[in-house]
Amino acid sequence: MCGRYATTTNPATLAVELDALDETGDTGFSPNYNVAPTNQVLTVVQRHDREHLEDPATLRVRAMRWGLIPPWTKTAEPGVPVKGKPLFNARADKAATTASFRDAVKKRRCLVPMDGWYEWVTEPGGTGKAVKHPFFMSEADGGRLYMAGLWSVWRDRDQGDAAQTLLSCTILTTDAVGELTKVHDRMPLPMPREHWDAWLDPDHPAPEELLETPAAAAVSNILIRPVPMLVNSVKNNGPELLSEVDEQAGQQISLI
């Protein structure tokens, strides 16, 4: 499962690093240490130029709502989709046969860049009340992670050609492997660089093996560490959420 993560990259910088087009526009992205469902997030897609469809597809950095909105979603009011449970995660093993995701699996796959993601381990507190201890999973060398995602385009059909498009995405999850099983039984599905071309290809289905649970070696460089309980509230946002925690102070637990 992945319901909260951190990303500090700038879209323009990301586009330069990936040799991609920055299509985020004036969305005003800034570092977000507590990304939550329905937030605007950065994604990487590969698409053809609408004016030159015969040209090769190119990488593009786009802003999308985290929580996929299927194209067939009805309107609550003009230009606004009906609110429902945010589809911020999709099971990789079932997405191809799930109505909300199957079209996206065929032709709208993306990457979701992040510094790392949060999970919580629940234990009884001193008063008997359960306490949620947050942990942050990130590359040990501080590198950026890219998770497999799906995206969708929603339009208010009643508005015809005048309808504005709403881009939204979801992060694929799979069974946790390796040391990550100590934190949660699910994890976001990492997409190694060598598989990007096949995963993002808008003209062909992705190889089925890319949706399979990876070997433990794929996450062997992931560092798991406790972080302050400040992250438990989405109202908190800043680098202090990733600061070191004094486990001796009794604020956190260690994974055994």
Rank of each mutant, 00 (worst) to 15 (best):
M1D: 11
G3K: 04
Y5T: 09
P11C: 15
A12L: 11
T13K: 11
L14I: 11
V16F: 05
E17R: 05
A20H: 04
A20M: 09
D22W: 01
D22E: 04
T24W: 04
T24Q: 07
G25H: 02
G25M: 08
G25N: 05
T27M: 15
T27V: 13
S30N: 05
P31S: 09
P31F: 05
N32R: 02
N32G: 02
T38Q: 11
Q40L: 12
T43M: 14
T43D: 08
T43V: 12
V45I: 15
R47V: 13
D49V: 03
D49W: 00
H52R: 14
A57F: 03
A57R: 00
T58A: 15
L59V: 06
R60N: 05
R60C: 10
R60P: 01
R62C: 14
A63W: 00
M64H: 01
M64D: 01
G67I: 11
L68D: 05
L68Q: 09
I69K: 01
I69F: 02
I69L: 04
T73W: 02
E77I: 00
G79H: 09
V80A: 13
K85Q: 14
N89A: 13
R91M: 10
R91T: 07
A92Q: 03
A92I: 07
A96M: 11
T97I: 13
T97G: 07
A99G: 02
A104L: 06
V105N: 08
V105T: 14
K106V: 07
K107P: 01
R108C: 03
R109D: 03
C110D: 04
V112F: 06
P113G: 12
G116D: 10
E119P: 00
E119R: 02
E119C: 08
W120G: 09
W120D: 07
V121Y: 04
G128M: 08
K129A: 15
V131D: 09
K132C: 05
H133E: 01
P134E: 06
P134S: 09
F135P: 01
M137N: 08
S138R: 15
E139D: 08
A140C: 01
A140Q: 08
G142D: 12
L145Y: 00
Y146K: 01
M147G: 05
A148T: 08
L150S: 06
L150A: 10
S152T: 12
V153F: 02
W154N: 11
D156F: 05
R157I: 06
D158C: 02
D158Q: 11
Q159F: 01
A162C: 04
T165V: 14
L166V: 14
T170K: 03
T174V: 15
A176F: 02
V177E: 11
L180F: 03
K182H: 08
P192H: 08
R193G: 02
R193E: 14
W199T: 06
L200C: 10
P202F: 07
H204G: 09
P205Y: 07
E208P: 01
E209P: 00
L210W: 07
L210M: 13
L211R: 06
T213L: 05
A215Q: 09
A216C: 06
S220N: 05
I224A: 06
R225P: 00
P226F: 14
V227I: 15
P228I: 09
M229W: 02
V231G: 13
S233M: 12
V234R: 12
K235L: 14
N236D: 14
G238H: 05
G238T: 12
L241F: 08
A249D: 10
I253S: 04
L255S: 10
I256C: 03
I256D: 14
